[in-house]
Computed example of a mutant assay.
Amino acid sequence: MDTSNGQTLFEREAGRRFVPASVTKVMTVYTAFKLIDEGALRTEMPFQYTQELEDAWYNEGSNMFLRAGEQPTIGQLLLGITTVSGNDASVALAVAATGSLENWLALMNANAAELGMNDTHFGSPNGYPDGGQTYTSARDLALLGEALTKNYPELYKRYFGHRGLRWGGIAQDNHDPVTGRVDGADGMKTGYTREAGFTFLGSAERDGRRLMMVLAGSPNGGLRDRTARELLEWGFDNFEQSMLVPSQAVVGHALVQDGESPRVALRTPVAVRTTIPRGTALGDVTMEIVYRGPIEAPITDGDRIAQLRVSIDGEPTLEFPLEAAATVERANAWQRIVNAWRRWTA
């Protein structure tokens, strides 16, 4: 998926549910980033790792190898998750941030719902086998990766893309197969269990254009890693963007109810671009303004009140937000009479 415009370049069974294994941890990181951004969690806050947690998670699958009595900070736990896929670090972060796994899972699932991840549910913070409670889809993971990189770009750069981590005298490498191997690649997360097979959510950015890719159910790690690299290179090498409408261009109007004006101009807050195979013609492009209307006043300049639906060769391809290009105050009594007369005579 090209996240600069949300366009899917290739998909196969993108809505099929599967077990994500450690790719689950991307939602744990997203949930932490959101709390940090809201001021509810601080990266420098220490957490007292308990004997109970050590007994449950030491050397259980991929590990940061935390020991009871240690006091990692939230930032160190995040690095333990993003760099060495620590199952122990994921649980520690959950407990440190909300006091219990139950509270943390509620946040993870609320965030999934907010992002429109309709084929996803989380039953653990780390993807450890849980009897099928945790599942997702390629489409949903692409949405999650897009939200992570767009909503929290500085935190993403700070915590993803590290090649290794040393904790407690143990040095480990990051198993990310694309960072350092594909130009512009910077993460995100591999996963493996017998139930899930080999999975990966990966991303790379070149010249302001970011691609997000998902692989699931690979029978071995080598195939997953090669395919991940080849998919990203294919996306950059074989596609280019074409501008349809520049940013801040007025493209039409929406009807207004009970406003001082009967309609309001609509403009593009960002450039409308489509991604096409290199060396090919754009094809027959049609654009349609879509909104639930008339839109009730008051409306403020900049309010996002409509969508621009783009179809190429008759196939709906993309939707872009449209915003009000002016402020429309609520009509006074006389203006409402005039508006009613206009509607009656139209």
Rank of each mutant, 00 (worst) to 15 (best):
R166V: 11
R206S: 08
M108Q: 15
A110Q: 12
G168D: 12
H175M: 06
R181E: 11
V91K: 11
D130W: 07
S137Q: 05
A216L: 01
M212C: 06
R166L: 05
S90W: 00
N174T: 05
G75I: 04
G187R: 02
L105S: 07
D173Y: 07
V178A: 03
L143K: 15
G169E: 05
H121V: 02
E195C: 00
D140L: 10
R181P: 00
G161I: 04
G208M: 05
T193N: 11
N118I: 08
N109S: 09
S100T: 06
P153N: 06
L148Q: 06
V95N: 07
Y128D: 03
Q76C: 01
E146Y: 00
G127M: 14
T120N: 13
G217T: 04
D207N: 15
M117P: 12
N109M: 05
D140I: 05
D207S: 15
T83D: 13
T193E: 11
L105I: 12
G116D: 08
P129Q: 04
I81F: 12
G80A: 09
G132T: 08
F160E: 04
F198W: 14
E205V: 12
Y159C: 08
G197F: 09
F200N: 07
V214I: 13
N174L: 08
I81E: 10
S137L: 03
R163K: 14
L211V: 04
L107G: 00
G86Q: 12
A196E: 03
G208N: 12
G145I: 02
L77A: 10
S90N: 03
A185E: 09
Y156S: 11
D173M: 06
G161F: 06
D88R: 10
